[in-house]
Protein backbone atom coordinates (compact mmCIF):
# COMPACT_ATOMS: atom_id res chain seq x y z
CA UNK A 1 0.00 0.00 0.00
CA UNK A 2 2.96 2.27 0.49
CA UNK A 3 3.91 2.96 -3.08
CA UNK A 4 1.07 4.67 -4.89
CA UNK A 5 2.61 4.62 -8.32
CA UNK A 6 0.45 7.38 -9.69
CA UNK A 7 2.28 9.68 -12.03
CA UNK A 8 0.85 12.91 -10.65
CA UNK A 9 1.85 12.19 -7.07
CA UNK A 10 5.26 10.98 -8.17
CA UNK A 11 6.09 14.10 -10.11
CA UNK A 12 4.55 16.35 -7.49
CA UNK A 13 6.65 14.74 -4.78
CA UNK A 14 9.80 15.15 -6.88
CA UNK A 15 9.09 18.85 -7.26
CA UNK A 16 7.76 19.50 -3.79
CA UNK A 17 10.46 17.80 -1.76
CA UNK A 18 13.26 20.32 -2.57
CA UNK A 19 10.87 23.18 -1.97
CA UNK A 20 9.74 21.72 1.34
CA UNK A 21 13.29 21.12 2.45
CA UNK A 22 14.27 24.62 1.47
CA UNK A 23 11.29 25.95 3.37
CA UNK A 24 12.20 23.89 6.41
CA UNK A 25 15.73 25.28 6.43
CA UNK A 26 14.25 28.76 6.02
CA UNK A 27 11.98 28.15 9.00
CA UNK A 28 14.90 26.82 11.00
CA UNK A 29 17.11 29.83 10.37
CA UNK A 30 14.52 32.54 10.81
CA UNK A 31 13.02 30.89 13.84
CA UNK A 32 14.82 33.04 16.35
CA UNK A 33 13.15 36.24 15.26
CA UNK A 34 9.89 35.21 13.56
CA UNK A 35 7.66 32.14 13.81
CA UNK A 36 9.62 28.99 13.02
CA UNK A 37 12.39 27.10 14.78
CA UNK A 38 13.92 23.67 14.85
CA UNK A 39 10.85 21.76 15.96
CA UNK A 40 8.55 23.19 13.29
CA UNK A 41 11.21 22.95 10.61
CA UNK A 42 11.80 19.30 11.49
CA UNK A 43 8.10 18.58 11.17
CA UNK A 44 7.96 20.26 7.75
CA UNK A 45 10.94 18.31 6.48
CA UNK A 46 9.47 15.07 7.80
CA UNK A 47 6.24 15.85 5.96
CA UNK A 48 8.19 16.34 2.74
CA UNK A 49 10.02 13.04 3.09
CA UNK A 50 6.78 11.27 4.00
CA UNK A 51 5.21 12.51 0.78
CA UNK A 52 8.21 11.26 -1.17
CA UNK A 53 7.93 7.91 0.58
CA UNK A 54 4.31 7.52 -0.40
CA UNK A 55 5.05 8.41 -3.98
CA UNK A 56 8.24 6.43 -4.60
CA UNK A 57 8.49 3.79 -1.89
CA UNK A 58 10.89 3.00 0.86
CA UNK A 59 13.90 1.99 -1.24
CA UNK A 60 13.89 5.30 -3.08
CA UNK A 61 13.71 7.18 0.21
CA UNK A 62 16.61 5.22 1.69
CA UNK A 63 18.66 5.91 -1.41
CA UNK A 64 17.80 9.59 -1.21
CA UNK A 65 18.54 9.96 2.50
CA UNK A 66 21.84 8.06 2.46
CA UNK A 67 22.03 8.10 6.25
CA UNK A 68 19.69 6.06 8.41
CA UNK A 69 17.06 8.11 10.26
CA UNK A 70 18.28 6.59 13.51
CA UNK A 71 21.74 8.02 12.91
CA UNK A 72 20.08 11.37 12.32
CA UNK A 73 18.57 11.14 15.80
CA UNK A 74 21.96 10.32 17.26
CA UNK A 75 23.61 13.18 15.41
CA UNK A 76 20.93 15.57 16.63
CA UNK A 77 21.41 14.52 20.24
CA UNK A 78 25.15 14.89 19.84
CA UNK A 79 24.73 18.43 18.48
CA UNK A 80 22.36 19.27 21.32
CA UNK A 81 24.82 18.09 23.93
CA UNK A 82 27.75 19.68 22.09
CA UNK A 83 26.02 23.06 22.27
CA UNK A 84 26.20 22.89 26.06
CA UNK A 85 29.96 22.63 26.08
CA UNK A 86 31.31 26.01 24.84
CA UNK A 87 29.99 27.74 27.96
CA UNK A 88 31.83 25.25 30.10
CA UNK A 89 34.98 25.99 28.18
CA UNK A 90 34.67 29.65 29.03
CA UNK A 91 33.99 28.96 32.69
CA UNK A 92 30.38 30.10 32.56
CA UNK A 93 27.49 28.07 33.99
CA UNK A 94 26.40 25.01 32.06
CA UNK A 95 24.44 25.72 28.87
CA UNK A 96 24.97 29.50 28.88
CA UNK A 97 24.34 30.67 25.31
CA UNK A 98 27.42 31.79 23.39
CA UNK A 99 27.33 34.17 20.44
CA UNK A 100 29.99 34.67 17.84
CA UNK A 101 30.19 36.70 14.64
CA UNK A 102 32.38 35.11 12.01
CA UNK A 103 34.55 37.89 10.60
CA UNK A 104 34.46 37.69 6.77
CA UNK A 105 30.74 38.16 6.14
CA UNK A 106 29.48 38.98 9.60
CA UNK A 107 27.68 35.65 9.85
CA UNK A 108 26.13 35.20 13.29
CA UNK A 109 26.78 31.86 14.87
CA UNK A 110 25.55 30.77 18.25
CA UNK A 111 25.06 27.77 20.45
CA UNK A 112 21.25 28.25 20.39
CA UNK A 113 21.42 27.87 16.62
CA UNK A 114 23.49 24.73 16.99
CA UNK A 115 21.04 23.46 19.54
CA UNK A 116 18.11 24.25 17.25
CA UNK A 117 19.82 22.31 14.48
CA UNK A 118 20.08 19.38 16.88
CA UNK A 119 16.37 19.62 17.68
CA UNK A 120 15.62 19.74 13.95
CA UNK A 121 17.61 16.58 13.30
CA UNK A 122 16.09 14.70 16.23
CA UNK A 123 12.51 15.59 15.26
CA UNK A 124 13.12 14.69 11.62
CA UNK A 125 15.01 11.53 12.47
CA UNK A 126 12.52 10.34 15.06
CA UNK A 127 9.54 10.80 12.75
CA UNK A 128 11.29 9.16 9.81
CA UNK A 129 12.36 6.28 12.07
CA UNK A 130 8.77 5.68 13.08
CA UNK A 131 7.42 6.03 9.54
CA UNK A 132 10.02 3.84 7.89
CA UNK A 133 9.71 1.23 10.62
CA UNK A 134 5.97 1.07 9.98
CA UNK A 135 6.57 0.78 6.26
CA UNK A 136 9.19 -1.89 6.76
CA UNK A 137 6.80 -4.34 8.38
CA UNK A 138 4.45 -3.77 5.47
CA UNK A 139 7.15 -4.76 3.06
CA UNK A 140 7.91 -7.87 5.06
CA UNK A 141 4.34 -8.95 4.62
CA UNK A 142 4.22 -8.37 0.88
CA UNK A 143 7.51 -9.34 -0.71
CA UNK A 144 7.97 -7.37 -3.90
Amino acid sequence: MVKSGTLILGVAAQLLLPLQLLFSVFLLLRGHDTPGGGFIAGLVAAGGFALYLFAHGRRALTALLRIAPRDMVGLGLLLGVASTLPAWWRGEPFFTAQWWTLPPFGVALSTPLLFDLGVYLVVLGALLTAITALVEIDQDDVPS
Binding site: G31, H32, D33, T34, P35, G36, G37, G38, F39, P69, R70, V73, G74, G76, L77, G80, V81, T84, F95, A97, W99, A108, S110, P112, L113, F115, D116, G118, V119, V122, V123, G125, A126, L127, T129, A130
Partner: peptide, 30 residues
Protein backbone atom coordinates in the same frame (compact mmCIF):
# COMPACT_ATOMS: atom_id res chain seq x y z
CA UNK B 1 18.61 35.99 23.87
CA UNK B 2 19.32 37.95 20.67
CA UNK B 3 15.91 36.96 19.32
CA UNK B 4 12.55 38.58 18.76
CA UNK B 5 10.58 35.32 18.64
CA UNK B 6 10.19 34.75 22.33
CA UNK B 7 8.79 31.23 21.96
CA UNK B 8 11.97 30.14 20.26
CA UNK B 9 14.21 32.02 22.66
CA UNK B 10 12.51 30.15 25.51
CA UNK B 11 12.88 26.83 23.73
CA UNK B 12 16.53 27.07 22.76
CA UNK B 13 17.96 29.43 25.35
CA UNK B 14 16.01 30.22 28.51
CA UNK B 15 14.60 26.73 28.95
CA UNK B 16 17.10 24.94 26.76
CA UNK B 17 17.75 22.27 29.37
CA UNK B 18 14.07 21.31 29.32
CA UNK B 19 14.18 21.11 25.56
CA UNK B 20 17.28 18.95 25.68
CA UNK B 21 15.43 16.57 27.98
CA UNK B 22 12.42 16.53 25.67
CA UNK B 23 14.62 15.86 22.67
CA UNK B 24 16.10 12.88 24.49
CA UNK B 25 12.59 11.63 25.28
CA UNK B 26 11.70 11.97 21.61
CA UNK B 27 14.78 10.01 20.59
CA UNK B 28 13.92 7.37 23.16
CA UNK B 29 10.38 7.11 21.83
CA UNK B 30 11.66 6.70 18.27
Amino acid sequence: GHGRNLVNVILVDIRALDTLGEVFVLALAA
